[in-house]
Nucleic acid binder design. Structure first.
Lengths: 252, 252
DNA sequence: CTGCGAAGTTACTCATGAGTTACAGAGTTG
DNA sequence: CAACTCTGTAACTCATGAGTAACTTCGCAG
């Protein structure tokens, strides 16, 4: 029936009718790798386990896209497999079950969240700047490499243990965002407001982006992230800057 | 097994073990209603068809809550029925199928959207005020009487025809919101910005509220709506007001 | 009290989708 | 080339959930 045999992400895949194999010359072949000898090409090529890891990631990325569009329960493992050009059973070589996929998807988003909070706290000169750096980086990841997960939208689909673990991470992230808001209020960069409400509003606007952002649209992920974070953080800025009306100001 | 027999929303329900029937004295009895005679109590009591309509609405409301929490596919008709104290089959007396429920849920939200746009356009003194009235009313409905639907989140779960119809309404609503932003820019109440992006951001923050708002929380729906809309519209206000830091400013 | 319709219930059917199992080909190693 | 491993496929099992069918029970008109 369906014999797509599209490359598994950017991976190899073989099956019935095979074609379009090995596009670029990153040939997954001629390489020893198990003899503990020096790897050919000086580690420039992915090892077996690295390839597996890459495949896992492409599963998560594609799953995130599907979940974002159709929801967890609205997406079948067959759907994900088909978009990767393989069969469902192949996925189970890399993931234990569907819940794990969702869990991983969410966790990747949380990883991004924490990483960008770290960066913001390090690089920002005041509360507002720290917050903006963190939010911008997070949003870039969300609609860039993470494949548009609508984060924490279907947390109820997780298994109880996973759910607890995730909620804990999410709360911790929200707490750190609120801390930045408070810091901004104290250093005068952010206008007095309720940090809890502010963070909900900011994250709401940001987490909503995957619902309307299109990869093939007129804006890049970086442009959207920059513009949107500029826009939303102005709501709490102590000294609101004017919007750069040029960034497509006046709209289409 | 499960013989709850809780009242169907605020309706009557009868079945196996019956109890707690007819609490208040709104007795659904002593009333002619089919003889074309003057209805007793002067139409103060709901007629048969009105009761059916009320039940339909309580289905939609409860469904909205479930869909919002677990997603369309993650919610079974049994779930909805159980929370209403009836069995699944009873629901099918009032709705044709599950898609219809989702469609109705979305449409109620869109109805609110349009109604509040009308009101905003009528009552607001400038673009910003019109926008704020519309958004506030919409959000109040969303987390108030509509039962927290996360709107348009699973539009892909709709049947093609429904989806088209809904997307059309949604686009029309977004267009009207954008129009208010443009109007505000022209009359000087809103700072120059990209209306499209601004509306996405505003609606994102608002549509996200059902994800964190709790009926039993410390804030009422009206308070949240007021505060949140104040907060988010400041992002595009030409002359940003300070936040009323008292509304739980510095919050817990 | 009889008969009828409105509003539920219980007990099904039947498709879909998660996860498994048995098998197959490619490439490597001896 | 035989044996073995890695990676995938085809073809299942089996639970769940949408929708239906055949009852039951109540309210009420004659």
């Amino acid at each position: 029936m369906r014999n797509l045999t599209i490359l598994f992400g950017h991976m190899q895949a073989r099956s019935g009718t095979r074609k379009a194999k090995r596009r670029r010359s990153n040939g997954d072949d001629t390489r020893p790798e198990h003899g503990t000898a020096v790897p050919a090409w000086g580690n420039a090529l992915p090892s077996r386990s690295e390839r597996a890891e890459l495949k896992r990631n492409s599963i998560f990325r594609e799953a995130a896209r599907c979940f974002s569009r159709a929801g967890f329960h609205g997406t079948s493992m067959d759907d994900i497999a088909e978009r990767l050009g393989v069969t469902k059973a192949a996925l189970y070589r890399y993931v234990a079950n569907k819940h794990d996929v969702l869990f991983a998807t969410f966790n990747l988003a949380m990883d991004s969240s924490f990483a960008n909070l770290d960066r913001g706290e390090k690089e920002g000169s005041n509360g507002l700047e720290k917050l903006r750096i963190a939010l911008r980086g997070y949003l870039e990841d969300l609609i860039g490499k993470l494949g548009h997960p609508v984060v924490l939208l279907e947390d109820s689909a997780l298994l109880p243990d996973q759910s607890r673990a995730l909620i804990r991470r999410r709360d911790e992230a929200e707490r750190r965002f609120r801390k930045l808001v408070k810091e901004g209020i104290e250093d005068g960069s952010i206008a007095p407001c309720d940090p809890k409400l502010a963070v909900f509003a900011l994250l709401g606007a940001i987490n909503w982006v995957p619902k309307w952002y299109r990869d093939d649209g007129e804006w890049t992920a970086v442009q959207v992230s920059e513009s949107l974070v500029n826009l939303v953080t102005r709501s709490i800025a102590a000294h609101p800057y004017p919007h750069r009306a040029d960034e497509r100001g006046g709209g289409k």
